[in-house]
């Protein structure tokens, strides 16, 4: 995914703003990465270079940290992030069929974003709601006892929400 010049510029400004709050102690690297990702949704190369300079470490080390942890993304996510819990209880109660249902409905694979950047699909480690298995987290909201048919319903409700905000916006 190629980033536009505009996206790069925003990323740079935001990263610099965040870095101002932290001293050069390397222990601050992960909190900074988290804040940049919270703001931008991902961590682009320009941000990595900026952090490397701030903490006085090689850029490849920032890249090493970024690619080590599940949480960080190198490319922009979808507006709605669908996360399928892959905990034991969810797995034994059919998380893989739920995953396949999402993949079928969104026509993307896990780790991908739909072309309109509306949805991205991810697998997450156990979210700790084992008693409600299988679980899907959409944005921050946890949905329990999901079935393949409920996937359609969930998707529909998010699309409906979007339509309503759109209509609300034009009024």
């Amino acid at each position: 995914m190629k980033l536009t010049e505009e996206e790069k510029k925003t990323a740079l400004i935001i990263t610099r703003q965040i870095l101002k709050e932290f001293n050069g102690n390397r222990g601050n690297l992960i909190p900074v990465l988290q804040q940049v990702q919270n703001k931008l949704g991902y961590v682009p190369p320009v941000a990595m270079e900026e952090m490397a300079a701030h903490f006085d470490i090689p850029a490849v080390d920032v890249y090493g940290v970024l690619t080590f942890y599940n949480q960080f993304r190198l490319t922009p996510p979808g507006k709605n992030q669908v996360k399928i819990c892959m905990g034991t209880a969810c797995h034994m109660r059919g998380a893989h069929t739920i995953q396949e249902a999402w993949e079928r409905r969104l026509n993307i694979k896990v780790g991908e974003t739909t072309e309109d950047r509306e949805f991205s699909l991810e697998r997450v480690a156990c979210v700790g709601c084992c008693t409600m298995a299988p679980v899907v987290v959409i944005n921050e909201q946890v949905h329990g006892k999901v079935t393949p048919t409920r996937v359609d319903g969930l998707l529909f409700s998010y699309q409906l929400d979007k339509q309503q905000t759109k209509e609300g916006g034009t009024e």
Partner: peptide, 17 residues
Amino acid sequence: SVVGFARRGFERVVTTC
């Protein structure tokens, strides 16, 4: 400091930024 380790598990690799 051109090369370093990236990713993890079976995907761990020596690479550049």
